[in-house]
Design a protein around this nucleic acid. Sequence first.
DNA 1: TGTACATCAGTGAACGCGCGTTCACTGATGTAC
DNA 2: TGTACATCAGTGAACGCGCGTTCACTGATGTAC
Lengths: 225, 225
Amino acid sequence: MTTTITDLSPQAAPLPAAPHGTPGRKAVISRDDIIQAALKLVGPHRSVSTLSLREVAREAGIAPNSFYRQFRDMDELAVALIDLAGRSLRGIIGEARQRATVDRSVVRGSVEAFMEQLRADDKLLHILLREGTVGSPAFKAAVERELSFFEDELREDLIRLAEANGTGLIEPALTAKAITRLVFAMGATAMDLPPEQDAEFTRQLEVMVRMIVVGTQTLSENPSA
Amino acid sequence: MTTTITDLSPQAAPLPAAPHGTPGRKAVISRDDIIQAALKLVGPHRSVSTLSLREVAREAGIAPNSFYRQFRDMDELAVALIDLAGRSLRGIIGEARQRATVDRSVVRGSVEAFMEQLRADDKLLHILLREGTVGSPAFKAAVERELSFFEDELREDLIRLAEANGTGLIEPALTAKAITRLVFAMGATAMDLPPEQDAEFTRQLEVMVRMIVVGTQTLSENPSA
DNA sequence: TGTACATCAGTGAACGCGCGTTCACTGATGTAC
DNA sequence: TGTACATCAGTGAACGCGCGTTCACTGATGTAC
């Protein structure tokens, strides 16, 4: 029925599909049109919180006030972007995790998947990495929510891993949180890194995560300094 | 000679000290006047990168264009703020470290000093914690520079600690970096925390840091998974 | 100590700009007959 | 199938605002005599 392009901005209209070129009037505006326009503007050197409503509207090819038909304000758009980013990245890391279970190490697999995505210049990932500390309360809360999803999944993994290997594990939730926060903080700085340092950076990040994992194992056997 | 109030905004002028109240003209404007004004505006919910030149000038009680006599632009002011923040916090942590050497644990001492400062609502600390991921290149570079100072000092401490205790230590620089980044990332989220969760948060942060320290020790003895 | 004068720190007014938001509109979409 | 009509998604114009930056000024500071 509809021509089914659902993800990209120049969207086919339901029935008459921009009929005989009435200029100055967009046939149908979807939330996704606006989200895609915002994503085009965001990048390693441009954060969501600096986007203006008019700028996004311009990029989407719509009148500034048409924005209001889809979102209450820029804050609502920002939250939508963060939710989207979180869902996307969780999917990617989830796959990496499953690959890792049959393959080598969960740590290595996940860190590599994370870095691959970072290298791929994924706009959604950029958003999650950088926007956590600025912006409105709603904004920060949305990022916190996504991070805690990661932590939950990672915690389950750590528990499973510990049981499988017969190793100990103190405070799995805390361990998961430490790893998540460290990886995201490091990832944020990695965005500005020249590409030739990527390999070394990945190695460093892996060692860091391993320190935490090994630390929690050791502490579970011998809770001293 | 001069009346020596050097840190606060309503500054005594060198000789005639705002003579007979000429209104509308400030006797002398110093860089510090402007820095102090900016600090008044910054807080847990207001980041440096959202300050406007006119806003800072208003707070400092000067004409907007007088700003230019002291700073080229807001970017230069932001970098000055970050340098100041870094110097201040390093001083505080440095003291905590020395206390800790004679006292108990370096980890505990430093984490506690950090959290004390955070609780004290130190504007300078807020800046360092949150501004690292947004703002201009010069801005980010300034934060990176301050963080790397911390890492250097911490690395020296870790080496000294390992020698004193006879414990191992792989990649001290990496260990220091992991701790620094984790603590700062966690600290950024702690600013928005209700005060009654401070104690629990401090405990968690301490455990996290200890995981890393213990992890690097264990890995130095047995570099496996 | 007084006086004339150069310097330049601080100023008020004005500029053009992009912003968020509002308003009444218009014309395409879909429905009732 | 064709026509009349209600709905409402998208619009262009306009608003008032705060912004960064410029300009020519003025009057206090400090110096030379």
